[in-house]
């Protein structure tokens, strides 16, 4: 269970996340949408204790992230950053193996190794597993970081723009994978998405942010409507229904 109470982050008095109180549904896929600078990454960073909150609190499974020890949280929650820069010269498999650190502290067991190979396979990285991170493409690197998050094997997955750099095939594959994590393994997935159509087709719940506040939340049927989306993004949107899913047209 992820819950926030008046969670706030200020820079010089200006709140970029402004008293956000949310209860995210358990064992469901939540998409967070909003324009650039709306505060989505800041919100996720505070929930995952990468950034201290200026005010308010965040809880994971009832544990206050500000006071719970880091390694306890690392076994309950994994986070993918929007821009994961690693300067160390490690291979894809090394990186994914780091995901097992909260469980094995660097001493990999047979089970750890199986999980690592699983995560590599899930993201179609097996052929690249022994390449160094600076020898693969941006989309491949993104998948490697997601594989590391999966290998961490936590109940909660927070993903900041997991579709960054991915082509259509891998983007759809990523969404199916996250959906399966929810449906088959009972995980709670929270992902920041800029592609509203993916959010509409895959998410159970959508949270729309603007200027640091949550201006709407609900299932796709409620959020993916011209009036809500125009309030979120400030441009005209046309919503059509394709095969039962709401789809947004805004290209021109």
């Amino acid at each position: 269970m992820i819950e926030t109470q008046e969670l706030t982050r200020r820079y010089d008095k200006a709140a970029v996340v402004d008293a956000v109180s949310l209860q995210l549904p358990e064992q469901a896929f939540t998409a967070i949408i909003g324009a650039n600078g709306a505060g989505k990454s800041t919100f996720l960073a505070m929930v995952s204790r990468l950034m201290p909150a200026s005010a308010g609190r965040a809880f994971v499974d009832g544990l206050d992230v500000a006071t719970t020890s880091g390694d306890v949280l690392a076994r309950r929650l994994a986070i993918l950053r929007q821009d994961s820069a690693v300067t160390a010269r490690v291979t894809v498999r090394d990186l994914v193996a780091f995901g097992r650190y909260p469980h094995s502290r660097g001493r990999l067991t047979a089970e750890d190794r199986a999980q690592i190979e699983d995560a590599l396979d899930f993201l179609e990285l097996a052929p690249l597993a022994d390449r160094f991170l600076d020898e693969i493409s941006g989309g491949q690197r993104q998948r490697a970081f997601v594989a590391m998050v999966l290998a961490q094997d936590t109940d909660h997955l927070l993903l900041d723009e997991p579709l960054n750099n991915l082509d259509m095939r891998h983007a759809a594959g990523m969404m199916k994978l996250l959906r399966r994590a929810v449906d088959e393994r009972g995980r709670t997935v929270v992902a920041v998405l800029h592609d509203i159509n993916f959010a509409s087709c895959y998410a159970d719940h959508i949270v729309a942010m603007r200027d640091g506040r949550v201006i709407a939340e609900g299932p796709p049927e409620v959020i993916v409507t011209p009036s809500v989306l125009e309030a979120v993004y400030g441009i005209a949107m046309e919503v059509v229904s394709v095969r039962g899913y709401r789809s947004v047209h805004y290209y021109r």
Partner: peptide, 10 residues
């Protein structure tokens, strides 16, 4: 791996 990845791993 850097500060944020390290914190993420506990």
């Amino acid at each position: 791996l850097g500060r944020e990845a390290a914190i993420g791993l506990g």
